[in-house]
């Protein structure tokens, strides 16, 4: 074939190829165009949906709060607690509440949430004592738990916190498991009836796995809200930019209880040492006073009000406790529903 144009057969073949490529491109665009979707954040979950799992038997006439004291558990400097003594105290205190077996379903999974906010020495009073945490872990296993997870989302670097404080070693020795948080474990949680807390990232990965929740808080002074006790301890279940909480701290603390209330947690207040000032971080032995006290209960207002008295202060001066009582979370008149053992 001479001349500049292609033959008929050639012409048709090349036109068909071009058309096919064009159609493929257009088809891909058509398909992808139809796929346009606005990225949607994950839907928020609520612990209300899980409430059935956390049901526990009623115990009519049980006290709201049991306080155990012992003169021997810590020396004057707040020095190490004898683990055996703290274990006996815990068992004694849990007796009137129906023992640990009431809170831990046999063969279930338990989340223990200690206050482990800082990479501090336990003697500083800024975190829950590792021996108290270990005693709770052992007690949960003795009550038939299949698995005990110990988790917190601390303010300081998590791995450093658990290792420096001795919590990781004590928990592992007791058979428990430390769960170090990272962003994939968090999903937004919706708090029913929240006053200020919007849908907020919470450590859902552990909350959705367990059948019981136990909080362990030290007794601490706090620079803004007055006292950091069991209600404020739930702060460590949340992620995100928590620094914003201070703007409405009393409301947020009440919302934290609204968040966790469906899990009906057992509350443990570790008053062996009390951080009297410079809280919530402490940092000096002079800030700590030895009280040799352990309190357990189910009423967050009563147990925290008792904790405020360990700080030598008036519970009614702590705004979030007054708010919590008004919201029906519990009673500030803890003395009437308290038992000492």
């Amino acid at each position: 074939m001479d001349g500049g144009t292609a033959g008929r057969r050639d012409f048709l073949r090349r036109c068909a190829t071009t058309a096919a490529v064009g159609a493929a491109g257009g088809g891909l665009a058509w398909w992808a165009y139809g796929r346009q979707r606005r990225p949607r954040p994950a839907g928020a979950v609520s612990l209300d949906d899980l409430a059935a799992r956390f049901a526990r038997p009623d115990l009519p006439g049980a006290p709201a709060l049991v306080v155990a004291r012992d003169t021997a558990i810590a020396d004057a400097r707040g020095g190490p607690i004898d683990p055996a003594v703290i274990e006996r105290m815990l068992a004694r205190a849990l007796e009137p509440l129906g023992t640990m077996a009431r809170f831990v379903p046999r063969g279930g999974s338990v989340l223990v949430k200690p206050n482990a906010a800082f990479a501090a020495d336990p003697l500083s009073g800024a975190i829950a004592d590792p021996r108290t945490i270990a005693a709770v872990v052992k007690s949960a296993f003795a009550a038939g738990a299949a698995e005990v997870l110990v988790a917190d989302n601390p303010i300081a670097a998590p791995a450093l916190v658990f290792d420096r404080s001795g919590i990781a070693a004590a928990v592992r020795a007791a058979g428990g498991r430390i769960v170090v948080p990272d962003e994939r474990g968090f999903a937004p949680v919706r708090v029913t009836g929240a006053t200020v807390l919007p849908d907020w990232p919470a450590f859902i990965a552990v909350l959705a796995r367990v059948d019981a929740v136990i909080g362990i808080a030290p007794v601490k002074d706090h620079n803004l809200c007055g006292a950091s006790l069991t209600m404020k301890n739930w702060y460590g279940l949340l992620g995100g930019n928590r620094s914003q909480f201070h703007q409405h701290i009393h409301e947020v603390i009440c919302d934290l209880w609204r968040l966790v209330r469906p899990a009906a947690p057992l509350l443990v207040l570790d008053g062996t040492r009390v951080l009297m000032r410079n809280g919530p971080t402490g940092g000096s032995a002079a800030d700590v006073v030895v009280r040799n006290t352990l309190a357990v209960g189910t009423d967050p207002v009563a147990i925290d009000a008792f904790g405020v008295t360990l700080l030598g202060r008036d519970p009614r001066a702590v705004k979030y406790l007054v708010d919590a009582e008004a919201a029906g979370f519990g009673t500030l008149e803890f003395a009437r529903r308290m038992r000492e053992v």
Partner: peptide, 8 residues
């Protein structure tokens, strides 16, 4: 709150 020295 987070200042780690005592006194803060």
């Amino acid at each position: 709150e987070v200042c780690p020295v005592s006194p803060k």
